[in-house]
Design a protein around this nucleic acid. Structure first.
Lengths: 207, 207
DNA sequence: GAAAATAGTGAGTCGCCACTCACCTTGTCA
DNA sequence: TGACAAGGTGAGTGGCGACTCACTATTTTC
């Protein structure tokens, strides 16, 4: 018999985050950076091999860190969503109540043009990609922004969060089109924002 | 020497639409019907083999009629666009000027939920799929509808066709999401339509 | 009703891509 | 510094999907 491996089961069995070796940590971030770049350009259909090349590692290394391509996609999506959520929270804390929602909306649409993957995956609601709480967190943050805008009376009171999210995702997808430039974006968003604003007093909204 | 084939070159050389054999004509429409169904359900990524199965023909037959998958996609897209364009023209001729644009907009968004391919391909502006004049024809028809709506003063005069098209395509993509139901659709479109309506007189639109 | 043209068939080819694994390299720790 | 576990490597595997082609079947034509 051979002596058992020297890892005594702490607690009962689970929850050991495992410290990574130095080179592994470095490669992991390289892979994530490369993946974000590659998938931003080519969409989720880009190949894992291209990610490996861009990161300067062998393809086996990518799969050691992320067992499936889906895991890799989920990882960069979570990171992107986290950043977006932070962005929204900052606007919610510091920004002008009257412009916060519109600022974020415009910013996200502008970025979408460069990040196909976010849009594709958000739109597909992850056909297998588990984004867990990340999407919910973003929604809640946008919800706060919306509530403030409504309190400041720059957005109609009867507008709900889910249609704002629907408009946001839709417009982001729109931004991927050929022919979408800064001017078209400005005019398109102007229509959406006008639709969100309250009808001036004394004017019942016609439906 | 052998006698030359008995097809004398009419005109100079080109423009012979060639009558198809009876079975070929039948199969061609079967394939188109099957393709529309298959690609509507699964999007453009669905396989050509599935189209062949659904049509009840061998895969070689599909490729005889449409040398590449792209050709097949272009064919069904042109047909769909033609139908949409007809639809718009009908509304333009018969319908109420005040509601025509909104009616068409809502109708197309509702249909999108069931027709992934249209939306995907329109959005990608055909990465290789040549739709020729079909898109232009639809745009012109919608443009006429827009002009009428503006003359009837139900749409702001400064709204241009390209942002209407951008909003249309964006919203159609939105309709593909999980969670998109009739109620969400109604509220989302309400925002877009409110944004298109003129600001009530005496109220300068704030930007 | 037979020849000739046209169409249908489906096993097979080819390339792409996600994923594996036996072996080598490097970091870590005593 | 040496031993060993953790990590890296990249040729190889398997599956899928677009597309081909030698052969057979059906129309059309005379």
């Amino acid at each position: 018999m051979i002596a058992p491996p020297p890892r005594p089961p702490v607690g009962s069995s689970s929850d050991a985050p495992k410290p990574l070796r130095a080179d592994a940590r470095r490669n992991r971030t390289r892979i994530l950076d490369a993946a974000e770049a590659v998938f931003s350009e080519g969409g989720a259909a880009a190949s894992t091999e291209e990610v490996a090349n861009r990161a300067g590692v062998a393809i086996g290394t990518v799969f050691r860190h992320f067992p499936t391509k889906t895991d890799l996609l989920a990882a960069i999506m979570k990171e992107l969503l986290r950043r977006l959520t932070d962005d929204v929270r900052t606007l919610d804390n510091d920004g002008d109540a009257a412009t916060g929602l519109f600022t974020f909306f415009a910013r996200m649409v502008a970025e979408s043009a460069a990040k196909r993957t976010v849009v594709q995956l958000l739109a597909d609601a992850g056909v297998g990609v588990d984004l867990g709480d990340s999407v919910r967190a973003l929604q809640e943050a946008v919800g706060a922004l919306l509530a403030r805008a409504q309190r400041a009376d720059v957005v109609r009171a009867d507008v709900r969060l889910d249609e704002v999210m629907a408009l946001l995702v839709s417009t982001c997808q729109g931004a991927l089109h050929a022919g979408w430039d800064a001017d078209l974006q400005r005019r398109t968003l102007a229509v959406v924002f006008a639709g969100l604003r309250p009808a001036p007093e004394g004017t019942a909204s016609r439906r």
